[in-house]
C-alpha cells in the first residue's frame, strides 16, 4: 500500500507544483475540468488515474469510468510530450488509446507548453540578484558543458579515424561509395553487352 500511495502522491505533488508555477497553465487545466484520464503503464502493476479539476488529483484506484484510457510502455512515455506523435505511436503498437483522445492530447499540450519563469520563482527565496546570478551561472555552465561535449565528441572521432584507424573518414566513405556506384554501372553495362552478344550468337 504505502509504495503505491507514495508514487501517486509524488506524481500529484510534482504536477501541481509545476502547474502552479505557470499562471497560464492553471487556466488551461480548467478546460479539462471534470475529465478523467486513465494511464496504464505496462511496467507498473496498477493504472494511474488523473482527475482534472482546478488542479490534478492522481489516484491508483477509481470506480467510475475514465473519459480516456491510454496503454503505454514506460520507454515511450517521453514521446507523449508531442501530441502529434500519438498516431505514430499507435501505428507502432507502442500506444493503445480508447475514449476521447482530446483529453490526452490537451493534457500533453498543457505539459509541453509549461512556461516557467524559474528566475522569478527562485527570487522569492533568494532575492533578485542571487536568483539572476544563479540562473545566469546555470545557463553559462550549461553552454560550457555543451561546448565541451562537442569538442570531446570531435576529439574522439578524430582519434578513432586518424590515430588508430578503426573507422574510415567521411571522405574515404564518400570515395568508396562512388567506387561502388561506378562498379555497379560497369556491371550493368557488362550484363547488357553480354545479353547483346548472346543474342547475336543465337541468330
Amino acid at each position: 500500500m504505502p509504495i503505491e500511495m507514495l508514487v501517486t502522491a509524488g506524481i500529484e505533488t510534482l504536477l501541481n507544483q509545476l502547474l502552479k508555477a505557470d499562471a497560464n497553465a492553471v487556466d488551461k487545466i480548467a478546460s479539462l475540468k471534470g475529465k478523467v484520464l486513465k494511464v496504464n503503464i505496462a511496467e507498473l502493476p496498477k493504472p494511474l488515474y488523473f482527475i482534472f479539476s482546478s488542479q490534478i488529483d492522481v489516484l491508483a484506484k477509481y470506480d467510475g469510468d475514465a473519459d480516456c484510457c491510454m496503454d503505454i510502455k514506460l520507454s515511450s512515455l517521453s514521446r507523449l510530450q508531442d501530441s502529434s506523435q500519438f498516431t505514430a505511436l499507435i501505428k507502432e503498437g507502442e500506444l493503445d488509446m480508447s475514449g476521447d483522445p482530446m483529453v490526452a492530447s490537451k493534457f500533453s499540450i498543457i505539459l509541453k507548453e509549461l512556461d516557467i519563469d524559474w528566475e522569478e520563482h527562485l527570487s522569492r527565496y533568494t532575492g533578485d540578484v542571487a536568483a539572476h546570478k544563479l540562473l545566469q551561472g546555470a545557463k553559462s555552465s550549461q553552454a560550457w558543458l555543451q561546448n565541451n561535449m562537442m569538442i570531446a565528441r570531435h576529439n574522439i572521432a578524430e582519434y578513432i579515424i586518424e590515430e588508430i584507424r578503426l573507422a574510415p573518414g567521411a571522405l574515404e566513405i564518400a570515395n568508396f561509395c562512388d567506387e561502388v556506384a561506378e562498379l555497379e554501372q560497369q556491371c550493368k553495362q557488362f550484363e547488357m553487352r553480354l545479353a547483346l552478344l548472346s543474342r547475336k550468337e543465337d541468330v
Partner: peptide
C-alpha cells in the same frame, strides 16, 4: 490517500 482510493467515489 489510501482511504480515498478505497472510497470508490465518482462525480
Amino acid at each position: 490517500r489510501f482511504t480515498i482510493d478505497c472510497s470508490g467515489v465518482r462525480p
